[in-house]
Computed example of a mutant assay.
Amino acid sequence: MSSLSTIGFDADDTLWQNETFYRLTEERFTSLLTEHGDAHTISSRLLEAERRNLQFYGFGIKGFTLSMIETAIDVTEGRVSAATIGEILAAGREMLAHPIETLPHARETLEQLAGSYRIILITKGDLFDQERKLAQSGLGELFDAVEIVSDKNAATYERIFNRYGDGPNRSMMVGNSLKSDVVPAIQAGSWGVYVPHALTWALEHCDEPSDEPRYKRLAHLGELIDLVTQI
Rank of each mutant, 00 (worst) to 15 (best):
Leu32Met: 13
Leu96Thr: 00
Thr84Ala: 10
Gln230Cys: 15
Leu66Ser: 10
Ala91Trp: 09
Glu87Gly: 06
Pro99Ile: 02
Glu204Trp: 09
Asp226Ser: 15
Ser150Tyr: 06
Gly167Ala: 01
His98Asp: 01
Gly189Leu: 09
Ile73Thr: 05
Ile122Asp: 08
Lys216Phe: 15
Glu147His: 14
Arg118Leu: 13
Leu221Val: 14
Pro104Phe: 09
Leu203Trp: 05
Asp207Gln: 15
Glu147Ser: 08
Gln112Arg: 15
Asn153Arg: 05
Glu223Thr: 13
Met95Arg: 05
Asn176Asp: 10
Leu134Phe: 04
Ile225Asn: 14
Thr25Met: 02
Leu221Asn: 14
Ala83Asn: 09
Tyr22Thr: 04
Tyr117Thr: 00
Asp126Glu: 13
Thr14Glu: 07
His220Val: 14
Arg214Ala: 10
Leu110Ser: 02
Pro99Ala: 01
Ile186Glu: 00
Leu178Tyr: 06
Ser137Phe: 12
Val228His: 10
Leu15Tyr: 14
Thr34Gly: 11
Leu89Gln: 07
Glu212Phe: 09
Arg118Met: 13
Gly138Lys: 12
Gly192Ala: 09
Asn53Trp: 04
Phe56Arg: 15
Leu127Trp: 10
Asp10Ile: 08
Leu110Glu: 02
Gly60Ile: 07
Asp74Ile: 09
Val75Phe: 06
Thr30Leu: 03
Asn18Ile: 01
Trp201Asp: 13
Gln130Trp: 09
Met172Pro: 05
Ser190Gly: 11
Glu212Val: 10
Glu94Ala: 12
Glu26Met: 08
Glu108Ala: 10
Leu66Asn: 11
Ile148His: 11
Asp13Leu: 08
Lys124Cys: 06
His105Gln: 12
Ser44Asn: 12
Ala83Gly: 06
Leu227Asn: 12
Gly138His: 13
Gly192Cys: 08
Lys152His: 00
Phe21Ile: 12
Leu121Gly: 05
Leu33Lys: 03
Glu70Asn: 11
Asn153Ile: 00
Ser3Phe: 15
Thr41Asp: 10
Ala135Trp: 02
Trp191Gln: 03
Tyr157His: 09
Ser2Lys: 14
Phe29Trp: 02
His197Ala: 15
Asp13Thr: 11
Gln187Asn: 11
Asp151Glu: 14
Ile122Arg: 06
Trp191Cys: 05
Met68Glu: 05
Leu89Ile: 08
Arg79Val: 11
His40Ser: 08
Thr65Val: 15
Ala202Asn: 09
Ser81Glu: 07
Gly86Ala: 10
Glu101Val: 12
Gly165Asp: 02
Glu131Ala: 02
Asp181Asn: 04
Gly167Gln: 01
